[in-house]
Deep mutational scan, measured.
Amino acid sequence: MFYPNSPQTSPQLTQIPYGQQYAMMQRQIQQPYHPFATTEPQARLYPYHYQGPIQQEQGGFITQQSTAASPQYVQMRVTPVDQSIMSGYPNQTANGSSSSSFNYNIHPQQQQQQQQQQQQLRHHAMPVGSVPLQDDRYRKQLIVNYLAPDVTSTDLHELFSRFGELDGARIIYDKQTNMSKGYGFVYFCHAEDAKEAVERMSGYEFHGKWLKVGYSTNPLNIVPSNSSPYVHAGSRGAAG
């Protein structure tokens, strides 16, 4: 039997160049792979992502010199942007860049009308829970959420009447099932009393439920100042 490094198959040491006398086997001759043993700084910083320098080929596509990437890492192929796409944008300079302001050559009167329309939209648009300043009635009506099913309009009136005089209180019921929808409205005579009720009743436990109280901004629920107070009856038909 002959071994790869046996004296019968191995040459004389004098015939082997210096430095390879003890590297006779194939696994010894093959050098191990060192990912950080390279002179390129990109490979030292990113050993798993770097795959060699990027070269520009004919046709405008950018390719990489090395083989496919590892399945664990996804390499994105980048193509140059066609400058003709950006030619339609206004205020574009000769080098292809555009300024931040756009001039669509709008007539001054049209621009003024658009600004007025935007101001009107901001004036009428009102986020949930906010209180408008032009109508004091919005500051007097509250919406009470997360009410228990057994709470009546009379219970709601008695709960909030300790903060001040009320114009009314009612629970909203479903017309088909005649069941409470879980929320109601309270109408105060003074805005200061309503503000105190919002601050003190939010998070209050009532009939096993934690109440959420806020201003009601729905104009359909506003009680006119010259109208008669609501009837605080315990029956659902009268309260709904």
Results as ranks from 00 to 15, higher is better:
138 Y>G: 06
173 Y>L: 04
102 F>A: 03
23 A>I: 13
98 S>M: 15
62 I>A: 02
154 T>S: 09
127 P>K: 07
157 H>A: 12
134 Q>I: 11
104 Y>F: 06
7 P>S: 10
132 P>L: 10
218 N>H: 05
10 S>T: 04
54 I>Y: 13
180 S>G: 03
91 N>R: 08
226 N>T: 08
233 A>F: 10
61 F>M: 07
137 R>S: 08
129 G>F: 15
97 S>N: 10
2 F>G: 01
159 L>S: 02
134 Q>M: 10
95 N>P: 08
106 I>A: 11
17 P>D: 10
61 F>D: 03
169 A>M: 00
236 R>C: 02
149 P>S: 08
166 L>I: 03
160 F>M: 02
136 D>Q: 05
221 N>A: 05
64 Q>K: 12
68 A>M: 07
2 F>M: 03
96 G>E: 06
237 G>C: 06
82 D>M: 15
182 G>P: 08
141 Q>K: 01
69 A>H: 08
122 R>A: 08
207 H>N: 13
218 N>R: 02
100 S>P: 12
40 E>T: 12
38 T>L: 12
128 V>M: 15
10 S>V: 14
167 D>W: 06
232 H>W: 03
144 V>W: 05
118 Q>W: 14
94 A>C: 13
235 S>A: 10
222 I>D: 02
230 Y>D: 02
206 F>A: 00
78 V>E: 03
119 Q>P: 07
75 Q>P: 07
2 F>N: 05
150 D>I: 04
105 N>W: 15
88 G>Q: 05
23 A>R: 07
96 G>I: 06
97 S>V: 09
146 Y>Q: 00
182 G>N: 03
162 R>N: 12
94 A>M: 08
11 P>F: 14
219 P>E: 00
23 A>D: 07
5 N>E: 10
54 I>P: 05
9 T>E: 12
139 R>F: 12
177 T>M: 06
194 A>P: 05
181 K>Y: 01
195 K>I: 08
144 V>S: 01
113 Q>V: 11
155 D>V: 03
233 A>L: 12
116 Q>G: 11
115 Q>E: 07
16 I>M: 11
231 V>E: 04
114 Q>G: 12
236 R>E: 01
209 K>M: 00
53 P>Q: 08
180 S>F: 07
78 V>T: 07
185 F>E: 00
202 S>H: 02
59 G>N: 11
187 Y>V: 00
188 F>Q: 01
240 G>Q: 13
111 Q>A: 11
53 P>G: 10
68 A>P: 09
182 G>T: 06
160 F>H: 09
2 F>H: 08
31 Q>Y: 14
125 A>R: 05
73 Y>V: 04
182 G>H: 04
13 L>G: 06
115 Q>F: 14
76 M>I: 15
205 E>S: 13
211 L>C: 00
127 P>N: 07
83 Q>F: 14
175 K>L: 05
66 S>F: 15
85 I>P: 07
119 Q>A: 14
236 R>A: 05
50 Y>A: 08
160 F>L: 01
212 K>N: 07
86 M>R: 05
182 G>K: 02
172 I>F: 00
140 K>T: 12
173 Y>N: 08
142 L>P: 02
205 E>H: 07
61 F>G: 02
92 Q>I: 13
202 S>D: 02
219 P>H: 01
81 V>Q: 05
28 Q>E: 07
26 Q>T: 12
203 G>Q: 03
72 Q>F: 15
2 F>W: 07
130 S>G: 09
238 A>H: 13
149 P>K: 13
158 E>Q: 14
222 I>M: 08
224 P>D: 03
112 Q>C: 05
72 Q>N: 09
27 R>D: 13
114 Q>I: 13
132 P>C: 08
163 F>W: 05
87 S>F: 14
87 S>V: 14
123 H>D: 07
225 S>E: 01
14 T>V: 13
